[in-house]
Write a protein that binds this DNA or RNA. Structure first.
Lengths: 230, 230
DNA sequence: GTCTATATGACGATAGAC
DNA sequence: GTCTATCGTCATATAGAC
């Protein structure tokens, strides 16, 4: 039950946001929305034409919040690598999953171009931002020169989204963190690669040898307080 | 409507498997199962105590099929890296998503230890198999010595699971493939890394230089015909 | 704008005839 | 084992009083 100080319309949207995050679109009933928002039966239909329209308002707001909070980290201080690391390590409600990404598993969201649009646009925006950071970091040696920005960006976003899957399957946040550490270790290792990342398939006769000087074991940016996940 | 030659019990399980894949647990009704399976109303309750028990049978079978088909690729020919690549590139129903992974977004699956167990065990099995391959590949120079098997395995599985999210959000398989290519480029690059993958944070003064000899641009194993996704 | 009352069909399950 | 009939509840939405 949402507190007062908010209009009925606002409470309906906020209740719907929470239910969509927790139960998805098919698992969210108008009745549950009405009860959680504290609105009477008919009120929902006064402000919105029906469940799809209310869900659209809720999804759009969640998408905007996600862009705002992720943007704050990606625009933060540090080298491109450090900002990618800050994004990967930022505080998340891991076991609740991503309020945007989880909608892609909902048949009725995917079936509706209108409902899918904000989901698609948000994840696309995130990939473009990360791709830009990777491209920028290649110039400074923060990322390997052979890496493709869009490919790495897709890998980063996918690792996060898949990390939620692993965490929820196991009932523990550990798997999410493990996957993120693996990705970070690959990003670090590739920056020190002797060969471009795009062509040579690694076979037996590779024999990685020397040990480069570790210069500043920068412990990267501290986690941003945002509680919203993605 | 499933064809004959199958017992009613079989048709119920198969229908449930399809519906769980497409619509999840909360989006799958006994009525839809009965209609798709061609069974009468009461038949479902003759063979199973209710929706949860039938779903459990369906999920267990899907989990077993996924282990079988993934295992065939992971046990296939080639170096450890090539087998990981074959796994990442194997044929998938990308836009349908992973029939196991998608269940983690279902509140009633996650809330039930019994229903979540086969999901957890399957993804855990997959991670362990991949971790073993990475460890094995480190010996042969197929993977960088500094990489942690369990971490990379979690990254691989997460990239696949997150790739489904990106693909379904955009309505195209392209994003899945892009993420996989990014991960493969990182795995290849790290194998040529001059420094161990675990410690040094990449900063500006890194200057990756030389270009190693590409030896065999092995186009890796051909895709396995399995249509099941994961 | 907000509420109560109500409607139609779907959901999840049971009873019992064949 | 399979089917039809039925049950109580919930999902989604409308009507209309206040």
């Amino acid at each position: 039950m949402y507190s007062d100080g908010m209009s009925t319309r606002e409470r309906l949207i906020e209740a719907t946001r929470g239910l969509l995050w927790e139960r998805g679109y098919v698992g969210t009933s108008p009745r549950a929305i009405q009860q959680l928002s504290g609105a009477g039966q008919g009120s929902m239909y006064h402000h919105f034409a029906g469940k799809p329209e209310l869900a659209l308002a809720a999804v759009r707001r969640t998408a905007q919040e996600m862009r705002d909070s992720a943007g704050a980290v990606l625009d933060g201080p540090g080298t491109p690598y450090e900002r990618v690391e800050a994004y990967l390590r930022r505080e998340r409600d891991v076991l609740r999953g991503c309020p945007i990404g989880r909608l892609t598993m909902d048949p009725e969201i995917v079936a509706s171009d209108e409902l899918r649009a904000p989901v698609d646009e948000t994840l696309d925006w995130l990939r473009e931002r990360l791709a830009g950071l990777v491209e920028e970091g290649r110039e400074g040696g923060s990322f390997a020169p052979g890496l493709d920005g869009e490919e790495i960006a897709a890998t980063i976003v996918a690792t996060v989204q898949g990390g939620y899957v692993l965490a929820r399957a196991s009932g523990s946040t550990a798997a999410f963190d493990t996957g993120v550490r693996g990705l970070l270790s690959l990003l670090r290792a590739s920056a020190h690669a002797a060969a471009p990342a795009n062509s040579p398939a690694p076979g037996r006769p590779s024999a990685p040898g020397g040990r480069a000087a570790s210069e500043e074991t920068a412990r990267s940016a501290t986690a941003v307080p945002a509680r919203t996940a993605d």
